[in-house]
Structure formats: C-alpha cells, structure tokens
Nucleic acid binder design. Sequence first.
DNA 1: CTCTACATTAACTGATCTGTTAATATTTTA
DNA 2: TAAAATATTAACAGATCAGTTAATGTAGAG
Lengths: 184, 184
Amino acid sequence: MSQSKRAELIRKSLLLFYRNGFHATGMDLVAKETGVSKTSIYKHFRTKEELILAVLRLRDENFRNWLYRRMEELADTPKGQLLSMFDALEEWFLEDNFQGCMFIKASAEFQDRDHAINAQAYAHKLLLADHLEELVLQAQLPDARNLARQLLILKEGAIVVAAMSHTAASAKEAKSIAGMLLAA
Amino acid sequence: MSQSKRAELIRKSLLLFYRNGFHATGMDLVAKETGVSKTSIYKHFRTKEELILAVLRLRDENFRNWLYRRMEELADTPKGQLLSMFDALEEWFLEDNFQGCMFIKASAEFQDRDHAINAQAYAHKLLLADHLEELVLQAQLPDARNLARQLLILKEGAIVVAAMSHTAASAKEAKSIAGMLLAA
DNA sequence: CTCTACATTAACTGATCTGTTAATATTTTA
DNA sequence: TAAAATATTAACAGATCAGTTAATGTAGAG
C-alpha cells in the first residue's frame, strides 16, 4: 500500500470513528467506506485498536496544528493567543461536522487507564496543557502551571457543553472567564 | 417482577454500563451479572435502549439528589453552596469507582441529536443548569443565566479533566475560578 | 387442590463483530 | 518480458450482538 493510500485510509477512518463512535463502527464498514479491502487493512494494522491509535495520532497532529496556528493568526501576544483559543474553539463548534472532542470520546469508550487508547487520549491533553503553560510563561503571568490547567478546564468544559447543547455559546462564555483569569 | 427486583436490575445495569460503556456491554452480560434472565429483562424493557434510558433516569435522580444535598450540607448561603459544588465534585472524583460523567459518556456514544439517549443526557445538564441559575438568583448576583452557564462549563471541564487525568486536582482548580466569578 | 398468571431456562434466530485463509489480480522490479 | 512482491475478492471462521420462542417451573388466588 502506498504511503498516500495509507494516509487516506487513516483519514477516512477518522471521519467514521468521529461520526459513529469507536465500538459502533465495524471494520466491514471501514473497508467499505475507505475502499480498502479488509485484508489490506489488516496487513497494515494488526488490530482495530492499532488503526484507532493511528487515527488518534493523526487527529492529535491535525487538531493541535490547527489550533496553535489559529491562535497565532488571531493574536500576536502570548496573552492574546491564550484568549483567542476560545475564538478558535468557537469556529470549530460552528463547523457542520463538529461532534465534540475525539479524545474525550476515546477516553470515554476505552476507560481502562492501562489501555493504550486511553493513554494516548490523555497524552493529547497533556501536550495541550504544556503548550498553554508555555504561553502563560511567555506572558509572564504568575502560577503558570496552575493557570494553564485552569485554562484547560475551561477549554474542555466549553467543548463538552458545546457538543451536548449543539450550540457554540460556551466558547464566548468560557472566553470571558479566561479574560478574568488572565487579567488578575 | 417485583418493584424491588426491577430497581435492583436497573441499579446493577447502571454499574455495568458506567464501568464498561454502553456499546461494550452486551445484554447477555447484563443478564448474567444482574441474575435476571434475558427473557425477563425483555419482558420489562422492549429494547436495550429502553433499559439504558431507565438507567439514565436513575442516574439523574441519584446524582442530582446527591449533589444538591451535599451542596446544602457544605454551606448555608446560596453563594457558598455554589462554591461547595466543587468540594462535592472533589469527593466524587476521589471515589474508587469514579469513571467520569455518565451523561457525557452517553452523549459521546449516542451522538445523534435525535436519539432519545442523547436527548436525555442533555436534559440532565439542563436540569443542573437550572438549579445553578436558581442559586445564582438567590445569591442576588447579576447576569444569572450567563453566570450559571459559566459555572456549568467549569463543572463539566473539571469532570472531564479529572476523569482523563485520574486525579481530583481539577476540582480545586475549578473552584478557585468559581470564587473569582462569584466575587465579581 | 387447581387454575391462572407470571418467571425462568435454554436453545435459537439472523445479523454483526474482529480477524483469517486461499485463490486471484495487479503492480513493481529485475 | 519474467519473476517477485503486494493488493484484491470473497468466503469463512468463531464469537458475540440484540432480541425471540417454546417449554418448564413456581407462585398466589379462588
């Protein structure tokens, strides 16, 4: 399988898992929708779990790249970028195919903390927290670690509420809290 | 089936779904673990979905009752009760069997907004938001609706971070934000 | 005690699950 | 062009999925 076909398989699998859930999406459907035969899929991924892990790796890369870039585009100071994270989130919430955070959902479906999928989902959140902490440090705000964690709580809360309410209002509501936090 | 056996069935099913997830928990396992034959289960619940809905009704009742009572026990002013919600959450996070919010997980596994399970999960969050708004009003704080939604965002964010990180720290982190919100 | 109503067991649908096997293309390389 | 490596199809495991059927057991009421 060529590199590009493999990438396409992962990309299309991502959409299926994101839309339908992990357990609810069978490998027969993956084969049918990606156009790659099940035999070929299992030649490159030993198990469904390995395919899911590859999907999560792609999602992690895509999402963080997009978010970090968007934050930089929307503001040019570290503090401004932290605030504009919520503007970027709002754009995401307003997308037609917004279905919540794939990592929260992966963690919800694979709850065993020893499970590779659970661990990888959490790793994504740790990378986000690290990035936020770095920006907080650049903004020369006190208590960087704690502040970064608080911003992460706001982000996750806004995502969950947006996904469950099918509205984007939580982005602005979280942003105004973040404004208070960063002003202090 | 007696009323008590039916309640026991729902109670035990709740634990199974909470621990293993909805799709990942088969009805054969439910029958085995509850000690109620599959035939009997299907005499009282036409589908697995109806059983899940009954489980979510129980969870909604149990969880909100517990949370509201605990908030009242921990503080005697409306503002104090809003703050102590996060102390109650911390107690929950520290329980051995804490596995995140069942409604967030139900919403994640049944994403279709027209699905009864998704609607019921969201209804739980609306009831919580209403209760928070009422307390905010009693505390005579301005912008009650908006403030209640912000507190809900903090609550959901704290739960997600606690579940994914397997720690309870997010409770205090969220509480300190809530303290700022309510002081303003 | 007998009839009735309900509960239970266990086997059984037919579909779907993850993953495999064997034979048949198709492509890549020499 | 010939040989080697890879991809495909399609059928097949064996398990499990939600849900049903039919026969058996067991209770309470008359």
